[in-house]
């Protein structure tokens, strides 16, 4: 089992087996009890009535949710494309040989990584009169390009120095070495990180709700008000987000395996510890 450490789970003796069996039974009973309490809670408040759930699956309701999901996916797609483009530029600026360029890029990155996305989106919406969709995209791009720039930079720096040295030795200029040798190789290493950033970005699109954009969350909320089943509608919306994100993470793992770098799961002693998904965790 992937979660267990070998040292905890080496073959048990007869007494150990009995102990684990008892604990499994007790643990299982505990879980069942918690589920039962939750079930009773729903039932006692009349939240298990069939219509409250089945209303969500009428053709009209499903089309309404689908419309919201489409906006969410559009936000994520546009946001990611632009953020990647801006992020690449920022990463190169960070690695530039000219100190002023480096300084400006670093300040820019620190600033936009330090300000919460909600505030950025509100600023574009209220302060600069952007349309809701554009305000969200602008916020997503500014924030995520800063995070992506760091991912790109790390990817470029992770490449063996021999690569760029060899490129220079055969007479390429700095620019050529970066464009033709270093960057193409670095990009392949960054794809899994890019996909996990896409999960973060997709989650962040739900902030559009703050300025009334009808993406998936707002539509779930509206559906709940209209059908008088806010709890069910929001749980349904949350489930859609979860399915989409799990599919994205699964594809990230698939890409990682196909690249033959499948060492991501087990952290060996000595590996740097990293967990993706909440945000950039490299804030120092």
């Amino acid at each position: 089992m992937s979660g267990t450490i070998t040292a905890f789970a080496d073959p048990l003796g007869p007494r150990g087996k009995v102990r684990v069996a008892i604990a499994t039974a007790v643990g299982g009973a505990l879980v069942a009890w918690v589920l039962y309490v939750a079930y009773r809670r729903f039932e006692a408040n009349g939240q298990l009535e069939k219509e409250l759930w089945t209303d969500l699956f009428s053709g009209e309701a499903l089309r309404f949710f689908w419309g919201g999901l489409k906006i969410t996916l559009q936000l994520a797609a546009v946001g990611l494309l632009l953020a990647v483009a801006v992020g690449v530029v920022l990463a190169f600026a960070r690695l530039s040989k000219r100190a002023p360029v480096r300084f400006v890029a670093t300040t820019w990155l620190q600033f936009f990584r330090g300000v919460p996305l909600v505030v950025l989106i509100l600023f574009f919406y209220i302060g600069l009169d952007f349309k809701p969709f554009r305000a969200v995209v602008a916020g997503l791009v500014l924030y995520n390009s800063a995070v992506l720039a760091e991912i790109f930079r790390a990817g470029i720096l992770s490449l063996d120095r021999g690569q760029s040295e060899a490129a220079l030795a055969v007479g390429m200029t700095d620019g050529q070495a970066m464009r033709l040798v270093v960057f193409p190789q670095a990009v392949r290493r960054m794809i899994p990180a890019l996909v996990s950033q896409l999960v973060v970005l997709l989650k962040d699109t739900s902030l559009g709700v703050a300025i009334g954009l009808e993406e998936l969350l707002r539509r779930s909320f509206l559906a709940g008000q209209f059908l008088k089943n806010p709890l069910q509608a929001l749980i349904f919306g949350a489930a859609i987000y979860m399915v989409v994100n799990l599919l994205l993470s699964a594809s990230a793992r698939w890409i990682e395996r196909r690249q033959g770098q499948g060492k991501a799961k087990k952290t060996a002693p000595g590996d740097p510890v990293r967990v993706g998904g909440i945000e950039d965790l490299s804030v120092a």
């Binding site: 779930s220 929001l234 749980i235 987000y241 799990l246």
Partner: peptide, 11 residues
Amino acid sequence: RNIPLTVLFFV
């Protein structure tokens, strides 16, 4: 980890 924080707030 897979449900947006905003959605959790709403739920």
